[in-house]
Amino acid sequence: MEGSLTAIGYGLSAIGGGIGVGLIFAAYMTSVARQPESQKTLQPMLFLGFALVEALAILGLVLAFIM
């Protein structure tokens, strides 16, 4: 079996990001379903938070490459 630990490292880093992004979108949908008029206010926040959380997974990818 050949390969690299970096791929496993990336896989692990993606878990956190995946869960985080899922939670963010779930919370967004819940609040928009409860209060549809808040969508405009929430949407930029949603994407800021989503981008920030996903950054972790992307950093994992970068680390997988530069190993």
């Binding site: 981008a51 920030l52 950054a55 992307i58 950093l59 990818l61």
Partner: peptide, 17 residues
Amino acid sequence: MSNMLIRPATHALRLFA
């Protein structure tokens, strides 16, 4: 870090990745 450095990097890398 998060706003000035990681933001542009992830902005590009998300698309690329």
